[in-house]
Each structure stands twice: as C-alpha cells, then as structure tokens.
Computed example of a mutant assay.
Amino acid sequence: MSKTRFNTLYIVVALIPFLMLVFPIFEIANRATPIVFGLPFSFFWVILWIVITFVALVILYRFDPDQDEEEDV
C-alpha cells in the first residue's frame, strides 16, 4: 500500500468515529433507553465507537508502510 493511500485511509478511519460522537449525528444515540450492558444507550454508543476506533487503528498499524522500514534499520 502506498504511503499516500495509507494516510488517506488513516484520516478517514480517524474521522468517522469523531463524526459519530459530535452533535448532529450523536443525536441518533442521545437517549437514556434502552439499557445496553447496564449502561444508558448514549454511554454505550460512546464506548462502542471508542472500541471500534481502537480495533480499526490496530488493523491499520499492521498495514503501515513505514513499519517495515523501521524494522530494517
């Protein structure tokens, strides 16, 4: 994967969870019911997107083109 394509993908992966947690889109999840895993849905929504972001960034780390260059040095 080229460095430019990787950087674009990284920005998109980082931007999507951010957009899901800010005002207009967060209104979808901004309610106290239903209760999911003992949490109000809005808390669950935030924790869900934190976990999704973490998993996506770990996957991107595996495809990082600079990772191979650091191992060669």
Rank of each mutant, 00 (worst) to 15 (best):
69 E>V: 05
2 S>M: 02
64 D>A: 06
44 F>N: 05
69 E>M: 06
31 R>A: 15
45 W>M: 06
36 V>T: 15
47 I>S: 11
13 V>D: 03
31 R>M: 13
2 S>F: 01
47 I>Q: 08
34 P>T: 09
28 I>E: 02
6 F>W: 05
43 F>A: 13
41 F>E: 03
23 F>S: 15
40 P>M: 01
55 V>G: 12
61 Y>M: 06
42 S>H: 13
42 S>T: 13
47 I>N: 09
15 L>Y: 02
42 S>R: 15
22 V>K: 03
35 I>Y: 08
4 T>D: 06
39 L>G: 09
70 E>G: 02
29 A>G: 14
36 V>M: 12
9 L>E: 06
60 L>P: 00
38 G>V: 10
41 F>L: 09
33 T>N: 14
24 P>H: 03
46 V>P: 03
36 V>G: 07
31 R>E: 11
72 D>W: 07
57 L>E: 10
71 E>H: 09
27 E>G: 10
32 A>S: 15
71 E>Y: 07
7 N>T: 08
48 L>G: 08
20 M>R: 01
24 P>T: 06
43 F>E: 12
71 E>F: 04
27 E>K: 15
29 A>D: 05
64 D>K: 11
70 E>F: 11
30 N>T: 05
10 Y>M: 11
53 T>V: 03
26 F>M: 08
25 I>S: 05
67 Q>V: 01
63 F>G: 00
24 P>I: 05
53 T>F: 03
19 L>W: 03
73 V>S: 09
49 W>C: 00
14 A>R: 02
49 W>N: 12
49 W>R: 04
73 V>G: 08
59 I>E: 10
41 F>W: 07
61 Y>V: 04
46 V>E: 10
56 A>P: 13
70 E>H: 06
52 I>Y: 09
16 I>D: 04
23 F>D: 13
36 V>L: 08
7 N>R: 11
22 V>P: 06
16 I>E: 02
51 V>Q: 09
10 Y>R: 12
25 I>Y: 05
11 I>Y: 02
1 M>G: 14
30 N>V: 07
5 R>G: 07
42 S>V: 08
35 I>H: 10
46 V>S: 13
10 Y>G: 00
71 E>T: 11
28 I>D: 00
48 L>V: 08
43 F>H: 13
28 I>W: 04
8 T>V: 07
21 L>D: 03
27 E>Q: 14
10 Y>K: 10
58 V>S: 07
15 L>F: 04
26 F>W: 12
8 T>W: 10
73 V>H: 14
40 P>T: 05
19 L>V: 13
55 V>L: 14
60 L>F: 00
38 G>N: 08
7 N>S: 06
26 F>S: 13
40 P>Y: 00
33 T>W: 03
61 Y>G: 10
5 R>H: 07
15 L>A: 07
45 W>S: 03
47 I>T: 12
21 L>W: 01
51 V>A: 10
42 S>K: 14
9 L>N: 04
4 T>H: 05
72 D>P: 02
25 I>M: 04
56 A>Y: 04
37 F>H: 13
49 W>T: 11
68 D>M: 11
16 I>W: 04
68 D>N: 11
13 V>N: 02
19 L>K: 05
28 I>P: 00
32 A>N: 15
30 N>A: 06
72 D>H: 09
27 E>T: 06
25 I>W: 03
61 Y>D: 03
19 L>I: 11
64 D>N: 14
